[in-house]
């Protein structure tokens, strides 16, 4: 019996490594995904390094100049306090990218594990776990965040916690649904019969097979998180002016979209480009990781 398990383990590991190698190969061959990855890398590099190369500081005001459209001195124009929009957009990108990626990762990790465990174990424990999710869904988020701030003070980490606290919930529900339908499948039954430990089945078979919806939802979470950050700023959590983020820039841009449309267009474009890249990359990953796709 032990031998059988060992064999199954080794097999699973081999299968695992080849799965990842395979996936990597497939991903590189996917042109859109590669494009997405490259653009994303460029956005990250430009946001991180860009502000050092622009001739203005993100908080450098020129109130006599006020808001002007794109011109030679200010490629993307300036905002109402005469600050260079290019610098501010790049600078805001740092925040948004950090929040978008980190908070999504947090919610992904919690949501996937939680949902998978609930769906896999099932029964009473599943029921309790999912009711806990219901409770967290229903709590008034505004008050929740305000109380968090009272207890923990205002810091950047707290923002991730606040975002993570809401964003993993739907992810957990989605993963749970997937796992529940997968666990009745033949290959899982086979693995169970083979005596593979449950955490192995969960991590090696169930979650990889549910990756499609997980990745799709994760790419949907990124914009959500970036905009949620703007709402948290409203409550005083998150970036503090004169710093900004894409979410905040867009929020302010809306109010002046008829007078100074560039204040809405450029930050929105930055956000959109990033999200598109995330999305292409996500789709590519999904296809690449699909264990059933072996047509090519």
């Amino acid at each position: 019996m032990t031998q059988a398990i060992d064999m199954a383990k080794r097999e699973a590991e081999e299968r695992g490594t080849s799965l990842w190698a395979d996936a990597w190969r497939r991903l590189r061959r996917n042109r859109l995904a590669t494009l997405g990855a490259v653009v994303l890398a460029v956005v990250v590099i430009v946001s991180v390094a860009g502000p050092w190369f622009t001739p203005y500081a993100y908080d450098e005001q020129d109130t006599a100049l006020e808001a002007v459209g794109p011109c030679a001195a200010h490629w993307l124009g300036t905002d109402v306090l005469g600050r260079d929009l290019l610098t501010r957009t790049l600078h805001g990108g740092r925040i948004s990218l950090l929040v978008g990626i980190a908070a999504t990762a947090v919610s992904l990790l919690i949501g996937v594990l939680y949902g998978a465990i609930a769906g896999f174990i099932g029964g009473r424990i599943d029921s309790i776990m999912m009711r806990l999710v219901d409770i967290l869904y229903a709590l008034p988020f505004t008050i929740f965040v305000i109380v968090l701030m009272v207890i923990f003070g205002r810091n950047f980490i707290l923002m991730f916690c606040a975002i993570g606290a809401v964003e993993w919930l739907t992810m957990a529900r989605i993963v749970r649904g997937q796992v529940m339908s997968l666990r009745e499948k033949e290959f899982i039954e086979a693995a169970t019969v083979m005596g593979l430990p449950r955490h192995q089945i969960l991590l090696r078979h169930l979650i990889p097979n549910a990756l499609g919806p997980i990745i799709v939802y994760a790419t949907l979470t990124v914009p959500n998180v970036m905009l949620l950050e703007a709402f948290l700023s409203f409550l005083g959590l998150g970036v503090q002016p004169p710093m900004s983020s894409w979410g905040l820039l867009i929020k302010e841009g809306v109010e002046t979209m008829e007078e100074f449309p560039w204040l809405l267009i450029f930050p929105s474009a930055a956000l959109s480009i990033t999200l598109f890249s995330f999305n292409f990359l996500g789709d590519g990953l999904r296809d690449a990781l699909d264990p059933r796709v072996s047509r090519d």
């Binding site: 005001q61 109402v80 306090l81 503090q240 002016p241």
Partner: peptide, 26 residues
Amino acid sequence: HKLIAETLQRQWKETLGVEVRLMNQD
């Protein structure tokens, strides 16, 4: 309120050399 605070932040820093931060609350 934010615009005004940002302006004063700059004015006080320029004139008095003091470091000013902004803090908004609901």
